[in-house]
Design a protein around this nucleic acid. Structure first.
Lengths: 336, 336
DNA sequence: TTTTTTTCCGGCAACGTTACCGGAAACGTT
DNA sequence: AACGTTTCCGGTAACGTTGCCGGAAAAAAA
């Protein structure tokens, strides 16, 4: 074991030809005798030759590696997106390197440095909840490495983007509550400054506006993290008088947390209060009562983002676009 | 933009010294004047120099890239494991390339080929449900690329392994049911031949044996896939007479499926039938009644597997071991 | 036949880095 | 002063591959 992997030189030596001829035979280039080509290909497959990607990328200045940075690899939504990316990357003969920021800006930047050192051909990023400053991303772009942002984008940083239409999703969710008769609807919002938080909040506000309901600041509660600090907010909601009759939560975990809390405190869902979440996590189908929620097509977001990035790598630069995928309101029992 | 990234040569030119001197200054080697070293380091950081990993790996014959193959990136358990791996890899300055087999042998092998072409320093594999044949893995090992298998291992292929003690987990789960008074316990088992299926089955059988309960073949039902074909089996269970009084399911999704089915068919859980699952997916906490299940430490499995692989890459080969992480029985309402 | 064109191949340099070797200069020793 | 030692540096080859160029041999045209 530990033999040298077979190289182009080995083939050249055995066939008594030069390395450049072998190289040409292995690729689809003219200037090669069909017979030699056949001989080379045969020997190559017999020896189980695999080209050395490192050497290739060194001379080609392109690695076919794409770097991906997400806040957390575990997380139903992101792991679905990663899955979509992987499938598309595979089809197109690209390699993927994954990093997670664990929701910190520091890890995000250090991951980016590492990926750049690997000469990635492109970057797929969903920013951490701490990230506000686009300068690091600008630097990368100036080096000529294309970036596509997905889901959690940075408003100040122009680039191709793939997001779900969270505004519309939120709007539909809140409108659904209104149609069910809710008049005092709480929004448990996400961390400030994050695009997804703001979009969902806007959807909430506009839906109220459309139906001429007042926007009461006291009914808008902000999480700092995503789930960790939701419980105190939920307690606050339960103590509000009169009790709100609807909740639109930033995500399913928060919504479920609220449902569990209400259940153990004698507040009935949906009779006393209706609840809608966001994400369509597996838990939403399973919780009792099942949770109405906004489905985001994570797998599709991943596929699309990867597709766009690959396009940007290969072809001439087009105008930067923002692609919005539609959400779907999954109506279940928590709002019936 | 699209400027050449700064190389060791640029530094050498600007400082009027040779590339080898720069190279030495950048690394921790003797044979370098402290002053020159300082000058080089300063200029390097001023120019934002990053060494080209491709070039380094070409000459060092080591890429610091580790390939990971799992059946599915989405999946609560695997995404947790990947998360653990990523964190450990990062700490140790390794890069990760992820592939998913989508539970097919073909994709698994093609992923492996691709990763090898990238000259990965090691491989972390959890095999697909189709995989029986160890020859491809043997080949890799003969090339000197270390493999650590985790979770879904291949019995015929000797290597370092990290698994959870599924036997003990299953044993405890079934024993728990017995202690709650169950006497006719069904096992909804996983696909045949998979290590995890077999280990859990053995735990089931042995727990029955220990408590002198008969093993009834009619109470052991096999899934072919994991969840897709579970429903017919559950129907079968519901039609059994006398009705079984306990179920040990291969995973939480199957268990929840069963609970939902029973609920809509007037069978009470846990009064008529007690249920235990496997995995501790988020859904198990949330379902009504909450699901008793066997917790597997996915994140820890990932961390440990990566740690062992890195050890194997760096140090002299030690005897191959199988590391078993303990599970924990999470007792909830579905078995009370 | 000679000339032109085509076909095919080998040599060389390059990609960015490291490893090895040899040697100049500075220092220390007797 | 002559010698050995140490310190530090530059040159060169190599890692595996591709791209360019020049040229020999074969084929086509004159």
């Amino acid at each position: 074991m530990e033999k040298h992997p077979v190289t182009i030189k080995d083939i050249a030596r055995q066939l008594n030809i030069s390395v450049s001829t072998v190289s040409r035979a292995l690729r689809n280039v003219a200037d090669i005798n069909p017979d030699t080509k056949k001989a080379v290909l045969e020997l190559a497959s017999r020896l189980n030759y695999e080209p050395n990607i490192m050497a290739q990328s060194l001379v080609r200045r392109s690695t076919r590696i794409i770097g991906v940075i997400v806040p957390a690899i575990h997380s139903h939504y992101f792991s679905q997106a990663l899955s979509g990316m992987t499938d598309v990357a595979n089809e197109n003969n690209y390699y993927l390197m994954f990093c997670q920021s664990n929701e910190t800006y520091v890890q995000e930047v250090s991951s980016m440095k590492k990926l750049l050192a690997c000469n990635v051909d492109g970057l797929l990023v969903s920013v951490s909840k701490e990230t506000k400053d686009p300068t690091e991303f600008r630097r990368v772009k100036e080096k000529g490495v294309p970036i596509v942002m997905f889901d959690r984008i940075l408003p100040d940083f122009p680039c191709n983007r793939v997001i779900v239409d969270e505004y519309e999703g939120a709007f539909k969710a809140v409108e659904h509550l209104i149609k069910k008769g809710c008049r005092r609807i709480v929004h448990i919002a996400g961390p400030e400054g994050l695009s997804i938080s703001e979009n969902r909040l806007r959807g909430y506000v506009d839906a109220l506006g459309k139906h001429r309901l007042p926007v009461d600041e006291k009914l808008i509660l902000r999480c700092k993290a995503f789930e960790e600090d939701a419980l105190p907010l939920i307690r606050k909601v339960a103590r509000l008088r009169p009790l709100p009759d609807g909740i639109f939560a930033i995500n399913d975990r928060t919504a479920v947390l609220a449902m569990k809390y209400f259940h153990s405190h004698g507040i009935a869902v949906p009779a006393d209060i209706r609840i809608v979440g966001f994400n369509d996590d597996p838990i939403s189908e399973v919780v009792e009562p099942s949770l109405t929620t906004v489905m985001q097509p994570g797998y599709e977001v991943g596929k699309l983002a990867m597709g766009i990035l690959i396009d940007e790598i290969c072809k001439a630069p087009k105008a930067e676009q923002t692609f919005r995928l539609k959400t779907r309101l999954m109506i279940r029992n928590s709002s019936r």
